[in-house]
Design a binder for these strands. Structure first.
Lengths: 367, 367
DNA sequence: CCTGGCACTCTTCCGCCGGGAGTGCCAGAG
DNA sequence: CTCTGGCACTCCCGGCGGAAGAGTGCCAGG
């Protein structure tokens, strides 16, 4: 389609594009040939630069908001910049420390993620996103039940990855403390290492087996187990969106109408969830620019995100969302480092093995 | 100070003030004498109304943004309107149903409160606030410990008011499952009905007693108990602020500068917490208009809020915050009804007594 | 006590104009 | 062939002025 491959732009055009993107990122305004000539990096007159810029416009890397305005990078321009021109500015040791401390601070996964999203927002001055998808593929290490009120029981799931999830469920029958302890031991022994959907299916199959029909205790166990799994799973699909106010600082969205649109869009978390779920398949840092995705194409937003969790089983996504004109060179390493810090934290929790000296409970209440 | 008591305004002046406030609430604009004369409620010419309006201005109920603009109610004007003129429009049965359903839906207190705040925001088209203060005066019904990983233990507190709070804590020593069960039973038996700060003090006193010095198990129990109380208390001071985007709809805040200020102010939750904590002392529905409080005086905001929880021990505040020009006649019953629904819900949970048939554990591990 | 009339004030909107910034094109120099 | 200066053109933006509109205060008359 295009006359040349993306990568073999002439060196001069590359430099010009680089400079325009950089300047546009800091100023937010369209860049003219005169401004460019005066910046010192080129020994060229405005007229010559105009020719280069005109070429870049033809190739689709630049655009003019109107005749007689300077040029602004297009989505394609940003894409080229990110792929071939950008030099990531790595984080300072201070910044790393801040991230490490913040991640170390909390213990429960939801707290950690919540901190992460607001930290991300503060450090980037963009909107911070942290997403933890449904836990159906969540392999459990233990499952405990605690009585909380009559026919109200708290169920505590601990994942093999150290994640702890808990929820109060309402049951049809009352359970005594002893019963609950037995059930906890039984289910933990029987299903440790299984994912929630496997557990669910196995429990349902068990209801049909004759042995269960004659064991009242086992019946109760199965009923409680199914309730617990069904109640926990749909609930735990969390998205933290933090620091939406940072958008108010961006000059390109200073009119009330576009602010309204953006805030409403951010409130519709379902769309973001879909978007992040598709991202979840890819490994490594992802940058989605402007029209490259559903959410941002409307508002000229970009997303910088990366998976966290162990490589074998990713847990979710962290990232930022902000105007297309953002400092990718800083955002990329920031998101990258935070996601790695989170992954490390989760891996550590995984290593802290479950209490070792425990007697394994019997396989059936009757044995 | 003023020539007459607030309550004995002339009937005509009252009606005029009433009408001006009502019209200003719906339109958001300054009201002129002509508009008022044409509305049909007065058989008076604009000139006569002007005289009345001039009087009301002198009394401090109305103000002009500039000469030759209409009049706008002042804080005092709104205050008079709310105290003496407003007729609350009670909720429709449909609205009540929606609230009842939403409150019935969730079981865990934090979920209920979270739902409440976003429901409030949706139904009012204002910012919804729900506040639950620190739990130091929280009397517990039970306290359970569950092992979650080596030296990580989840502590589950159930309050006498049915509130469940849980937190993962890190301990210095590992505990076996059996130990944790024993500790749970012991602490629950020993401290059921006590408030958290009483528990804390008693545990600390116990460390000094000689009996504890010679009972290793008791030592461990005390250590764990103190850690649990210390970890849970500071954490649980929750404020839900939902639906900030609704401010974007209000025409009086359509410029980016004031939006910025407001969003930043809403982000500073500490100030709101202070404000709501002072409100917590008062019973019944509270309406704070414009300059009547710290937060709103800057931005011409009002707060409509009410305590929830049982009358004897209030749990927190629910309410809305929005521009001074809001439909108080609708907001008041809305907040009122929701707070009552929450209180009812919490009272119900209180009634569902804790599991009854449980054997009381021994008072000491040595007995 | 109410009313119509009148003069006055203040804001808002619109059209106009000039300056500034940037472009495209062209012809000439290296 | 490439770079450069010059020139005409386009478009945005800010300031100015005038007209319209809305509202007020005051006054005199019913």
């Amino acid at each position: 389609m295009l006359p040349r491959q993306d990568t073999d732009l002439e060196p001069r055009a590359r430099e010009v594009l680089h400079e325009i993107v950089m300047q546009h990122i800091t100023s937010g305004e369209a860049i003219g040939s005169r401004t460019l000539s005066k910046c010192g990096k080129f020994q060229l007159s405005p007229a010559s630069l105009r020719n280069v810029m005109s070429d870049l416009e033809e190739l689709g890397f630049l655009a003019q908001p109107h005749t007689s305005a300077g040029r602004v990078p297009t989505d394609r321009g940003y894409r080229f910049f990110i792929n071939h021109l950008m030099k990531s500015r790595s984080l300072s040791t201070r910044e790393r420390e801040v991230i490490d401390e913040e991640v170390a601070l909390a213990d429960q996964i939801d707290e950690v993620l919540h901190h992460a999203s607001s930290l991300l927002s503060k450090m980037s001055d963009q909107v911070g996103l942290v997403f933890m998808p449904t836990l159906l593929q969540f392999a459990i290490r233990s499952m405990d039940f605690i009585s909380v009120a009559e026919s109200k029981i708290m169920c505590i799931l601990v994942g093999t990855n150290g994640v702890v999830v808990n929820k109060v469920i309402e049951t049809r029958f009352p359970f005594s403390r002893d019963e609950l302890e037995k059930i906890s031991r039984y289910i933990t022994a029987e299903f440790a290492g299984c994912t929630l959907d496997v557990i669910r299916r196995r429990l349902i199959r068990m209801t049909e087996q004759e042995r269960a029909q004659h064991d009242a205790m086992l019946q109760k166990t199965i009923a409680l187990g199914i309730e617990a799994v069904d109640d926990v799973v749909p609930f735990d699909h969390d998205l933290y969106v933090e620091g939406a106010a940072s958008i108010l600082n961006k000059p390109e969205y200073s009119d009330a109408a576009s602010l309204r649109k953006i805030f409403l869009a951010l409130q519709e978390k379902e769309k973001l969830v879909v978007l992040l779920e598709t991202c979840l398949r890819e490994e490594g840092l992802q940058i989605l620019i402007g029209s490259e995705n559903d959410f941002t194409q409307v508002h000229n937003f970009s997303i910088v995100a990366r998976r966290y969790g162990s490589t074998s089983s990713p847990l979710g996504m962290v990232g930022i969302i902000g105007p297309m004109r953002m400092e990718y060179a800083r955002m990329a390493p920031l998101v990258d480092y935070l996601s790695r810090a989170l992954s490390r934290k989760i891996e550590e929790q995984q290593d802290t093995g479950f209490l070792s000296g425990e007697a394994r409970p019997p396989r059936s209440f009757r044995e």
